[in-house]
Simulated assay, not measured.
Amino acid sequence: MRLLHTSDWHIGRTLHGTDLLAEQEQVLSGLADVVTAERVDAVLVAGDVYDRAVPSADATAVLDRVVGRLLRAGAQVVLTPGNHDSARRLGTFSGLLAAAGLHVRAATAALDEPVLLADEHGEVAVYGLPYLEPEVARHELGLTGGRSHEAVLTAAMDRVRADLFLRPGARSVVLAHAFVGGGMPSDSERDICVGGVDLVPAPVFDGVDYVALGHLHRPQTLSPRLRYSGSPLAYSFGEAGQQKQAWLVELDGAGLSGVRPVPLPTPRPLSVLTGELDELLADPAHAAAEEHFVSARLTDAVRPTDPMRRLQARFAHCVHLEWSGTAAAGDGRSYQERLRGRGDLEIAGEFVDHVRGAAMTRAERELLARALGAADRAEVLR
């Protein structure tokens, strides 16, 4: 049995306001080629299928096309909702979809009812745990105490192990969306901390052959049988240069027999450029970044005029800009201290100086004074 472990598709996510649907569809549709080349029996999606609970029509259309390609390539698909998804919406028509090979495991009450796959060695029971919000899931699971992720996932896994006990000889796989101890987060995940307790110890998942984890966007191995696949695309500049992948999981008659990474393509790489604006615009060393998504950190002593437009003239996909010049640092005073005893012109003038990193000229100050005076007169007339 061959399974392709993926997670955190986040269909509909943007990068600093830039639409990524085309890049997402390109990468996710390419999974169908992996299914064909590697003879994959099932594709697993461990949560955060969409980026928001109410996805756009365009995002749902991308999922429809991607899943259709995977099914036509010969794989079944098992997916679960993550903390970004609406479990109830994602689970709509799940009974009908299962007949076509798409198994949406979104109901907490049914988390111990596996998708049953079969090969020459017998059954493989695939349990999909939807993201379990502790305050909600503890009631659905009948817990009287325990308000942590550890508590609800322990109860869920107890149910899984009880069902597995009734299936002698069956190999087992669990999909779960959680922050498991030993995992390394990125800066693009949404916090799932509840009451200060979000970490789930790895032993909670003991007793199954493989655990396909989702939530953390960096691919990583916590143990041979406990892994994060990571997101298929980089969703923050903190992930620039990171090789995205899926895990190809192989099960033989005895259980887990091997796991190996399957690198995923990068439709448009991410680059972080640091330097003065004129240097970034002229340096030939940045030629490759002209086709990348770019985050620029400007170090000019004075904030340049219209920097984003000028950057995009060379780097068409520059989507983020910050200025870290010497004048950008604060002076240590509180907001109240900076305003005390000052008039409108002085306050507005200091704001302009701070934002630009250079003092206004006399002509600019006179223009600002006239504008403030006109605003005051208009207010009196009202």
Rank of each mutant, 00 (worst) to 15 (best):
D163P: 00
V152R: 02
L164S: 11
S186L: 03
V200I: 07
H149T: 12
I192C: 00
E150M: 06
T144A: 11
R171Y: 05
P201W: 01
H177W: 06
R190M: 03
E189A: 07
D206N: 13
V194Q: 06
G207M: 04
H215E: 11
G182V: 11
A162T: 13
A162V: 03
L153N: 15
A178M: 09
V208F: 06
T144S: 12
V204W: 01
R147A: 14
A170S: 14
E150W: 01
D158E: 15
L166S: 13
D209Y: 07
T144P: 03
A212L: 08
G183R: 01
H215R: 07
R147S: 14
D158Y: 01
L164F: 04
D187A: 11
L153G: 07
V208H: 04
R161D: 10
G145D: 15
V160L: 00
P168N: 08
H149W: 10
L153A: 07
R190V: 12
A178T: 08
D163G: 11
F179M: 14
R171C: 05
D187W: 02
G146V: 07
P185W: 07
L164W: 05
L199W: 06
I192K: 01
M184Y: 00
H149F: 10
F179N: 12
V194Y: 11
V197N: 14
G196K: 04
P203Y: 08
R167C: 02
G146M: 05
C193Q: 15
D158G: 11
G145W: 04
G145M: 01
P185C: 03
D209H: 13
L175P: 08
G195Y: 09
R161G: 07
L213S: 12
A170Q: 08
H177N: 11
D206K: 02
R147Y: 12
G196P: 09
G196T: 11
R159C: 07
G145R: 15
S186N: 02
F165W: 06
F165D: 13
G145I: 00
D198S: 15
L153H: 15
L213W: 02
P185A: 13
L213N: 12
D206T: 11
